[in-house]
Design a binder for these strands. Structure first.
Lengths: 345, 345
DNA sequence: GCCCAGTTTTACACCGGTGTAAACACCGGT
DNA sequence: ACCGGTGTTTACACCGGTGTAAAACTGGGC
């Protein structure tokens, strides 16, 4: 049975018949092929609008091997950082007449592997992938040829296009800011195990560099690991820090969610931010702007991340000869707010 | 030039040749058509895995008139409520082997109209749409036949499937909770103009009902409109309330973002929550759980919204004879936290 | 050994577009 | 009248699957 004909949807052939031209001519008009006579074009356009014709994208995709769809694969859409990133990616893509399909890995290694294996390959032109559990080795093994751009934090020695901020530099700036306020016992919340190679590793590195350069000791008790980057983990880590014989007077939290959790833990103890403890976060999520106190944070240029990522992907999709992998660093800025500067005026 | 062949991707025909059967038999195996002899099936499966064959979805879509894609159209992906909703929709869809394409209208009426006109129709099987600027009249005029389920708050007299919570009941419960704490000057933040018919209208209605039933006056000065549902607007509205000769002792905010803004404004004045003013929000966004104080809120069952919406859409997509429009109310719960109950323990 | 019903497999058209290469129209120049 | 060139249009194969209906095979009953 013929579903589409039953639904009465006009096809290219119907338009062609009505306009008295060949299918291909109609196709040429639609695709703005330059050598179409004006009177032909207008006859065709008229027929199109009379019939309310719209191209069948499945057919077009099949014919030209493109889908007009890119996938954004992230761990979880309701983590504020990813929400914002996704919002910008969808936005930017919309402007390039691409449409975005979103998948969540929920930090599941198996699922990330499926994505690498090309689970989506037949329905997308390209892939923006923010891996969280995937090893460099697993990336090396990738056989699927769908163009891919990596987002986010983990560095995989330049085998693929990769867009991120310079995490070491960002951590340096955050830590230096705390020192510039006169703080001397600066803690870090959000480290991962020593074998980690991702953002946490780099942020820790920046933090340690600045302390050392300032002649301050890097004290292991001030560096707290967190199982996940969620508020509860930040609060728990902060509790531990507050229980130390000599608690810190400042904390650099590797994400804003951790920082907000820490903020909460400090308040519960009846201490004040920034008077007793200053806090800097990372990511510049919206909550940090309306929290009390508002949160000083490293603000990655998420719009730029989205734009560059889509750009790179676009080039990779359309170039017959793919460019060599590119590593792009995006701007970031330290946004100083109340959690280090105190209440405004 | 033949892109796909160049890329060396095996086709159904290649599998068929290798297994020594016809294309259709391979197709039957893939689609688990029951009448395939066991030895044939295993020969085919072997060929499939030897070649690493994967079906070309564009071709399949073209042949069967389905895409396996649904669209979720919301105003903005980085509004926490929508982030969470999207997360669940993607999640649920993943379990039904559907994949989700997300578009943002950014509250643009024109763009919403384009969606209704079927901008996406040729690439999706169905549409989950959370309108924000679309009138009932515009919905009536819809001609595109893509199955659609409406999400969210605005009610359009039952022309389409619609999933939401009972906003009036939710607002009643929130307001009643504040009264049960002994508060008597309960304000409302987040009303819209009197011609509004959406959630704001219903929440206002529930609020007013409860006040009246308790024999309390509904005072216009305690009802604040907000241009947008963002923190800044909530803070501004709260400032106005605090400037009243007789400020409120409790506030029902129509969204959590408004509530968090209000919280901030109250803190800036040196007042305390809930001691001086108790606050209830709506949506149960994640930050309300880690704010200081944490936020009492109406918590819609977002998972259920996603599940039911996808269910309804699925039925509508697969039924030849579409069911009549269904209006479904999803459970909600009042989550009592510190902003009304005070610090725990 | 033949027929029939039930099971399994196949040939072939079709989904609705795009690419290729050839055909055609029109023009000025010889 | 014929030619070449530019501009415009067309026929037809093809993208890679699925649906239909008919063909081929199987085993049991007679």
């Amino acid at each position: 049975m013929d579903v589409n004909r039953a639904a009465g949807r006009p096809r290219l052939a119907d338009v062609a018949a009505r306009a008295g031209v060949s299918k291909k001519t109609v196709s040429n008009v639609i695709n703005e092929f330059p050598f179409v006579a004006d009177h032909t074009r207008s006859r065709v356009l008229e027929a199109i609008s009379e019939l309310g014709y719209r191209p069948n994208l499945s057919a077009r995709n099949l014919a030209q091997g493109r889908t007009g769809i890119i996938a954004l694969v992230i761990s979880q859409l309701d983590m504020p950082y990813f929400s914002e990133l996704a919002r910008h990616v969808v936005d930017v893509a919309q402007g390039r007449s691409w449409v975005v399909l979103i998948e969540q890995t929920m930090n599941d290694r198996t699922y990330e592997q499926r994505i690498l294996d090309g689970d989506l390959s037949r329905r997308i032109d390209g892939l923006l992938f923010s891996p969280s559990r995937t090893s460099a080795a697993a990336l090396h093994r990738r056989t699927d040829a769908t163009p891919m751009v990596l987002l986010g934090e983990v560095i995989y020695d330049g085998m693929f296009d990769h867009v991120s901020i310079d995490n070491v530099a960002a951590a340096r700036e955050a830590t230096a800011h705390l020192l510039s306020l006169g703080r001397r016992r600066v803690a870090a919340i959000g480290a991962k195990g020593s074998r980690a190679r991702g953002a946490s590793r780099q942020r820790l590195e920046g933090y340690q560099q600045v302390l050392s350069e300032a002649g301050l000791p890097v004290e292991p008790e001030l560096i707290r690991q967190t199982p996940r980057y969620v508020g509860e983990a930040g609060a728990a880590a902060m509790e531990e820090l507050l229980d130390l014989a000599r608690p810190p007077d400042a904390v650099f939290c590797f994400t804003d969610l951790l920082a907000l959790g820490a903020l909460r833990a400090i308040h519960r103890r009846g201490l004040r931010v920034p008077d007793d403890i200053a806090i800097v976060g990372h990511d510049d999520i919206p909550y940090g702007r309306i929290s009390t106190p508002s949160l000083t944070t490293i603000s990655p240029d998420k719009r730029a991340i989205a734009e560059i990522a889509v750009d790179l992907l676009e080039q990779r999709v359309s170039n017959r000869t793919p460019p060599p992998p590119r590593e792009v660093h995006v701007e970031f800025a330290l946004k100083v707010r109340e959690s280090t500067a105190g209440p405004a005026g």
